[in-house]
Design a protein around this nucleic acid. Sequence first.
DNA 1: TCAATATATGAATAACTGTTCATATATTAC
DNA 2: GTAATATATGAACAGTTATTCATATATTGA
Lengths: 116, 116
Amino acid sequence: MAVCDHEEQHHLAAEAAKANMPQEEDVARVSAVFKAISEPSRLKILFALRQGEMCVYHIVEAVGGTQSAVSHQLRILRDSRMIKARRDGQNIVYSLADEHVLAVLELVCTHLNCKI
Amino acid sequence: MAVCDHEEQHHLAAEAAKANMPQEEDVARVSAVFKAISEPSRLKILFALRQGEMCVYHIVEAVGGTQSAVSHQLRILRDSRMIKARRDGQNIVYSLADEHVLAVLELVCTHLNCKI
DNA sequence: TCAATATATGAATAACTGTTCATATATTAC
DNA sequence: GTAATATATGAACAGTTATTCATATATTGA
């Protein structure tokens, strides 16, 4: 019956895990954030915006790629609330949504021991 | 010539962004970490392991799905160093790799204002 | 050695995602 | 109003990824 040498301990952990598992909806929300910042091209946009707000033209200049591709990526980052946008005349000016964004990036970079 | 009303400011930011952009390799490493924890099924495994180490059988019990699917996900999490494994007799016992893993999860949950 | 159990893995398929291209919308200047 | 500029978006295609199924490996106990 025992499936492993730690049946009692692991079973309790599994029960606790089920009891404390976040709701599907919250898992999906967290997942969406990580997915948004998991593409290299989107990561580069976030790294670029560390320097301050920029309009699309200059983001393209900073990260490369086509205007269309960057614009699609900006939408995904915006939908997942990692960046915010404001219109300024003909331009849309983007910036990081809040201090959490940089904090997450820095935490992972620390974890990986890579300087950014 | 000016592409936006903040040409000077944005151009400087873009130049700084290019100068401070992490190397492709580092972007890829950071990207890989976020990708690893961006799938709902893998996120659930991490949430489950908050309760302590568990063998595969009990992880399956905690998060659902088939043994094979969970095993594939465990490999991805392991390859990206989010979890670690040790053999214990017939079982492989998994646990979170270090305190950074939970810290990142909690940071994002705080950002989203969802309790986990 | 053999059987039983726990876990891992390769291949195939289905679903998802990023980019490109063409085009649409919005703002400004005339 | 029209032209020019900045940005966004829909569709299509290509590349990627998660799951399933079948099977392989590793450990234990007999």
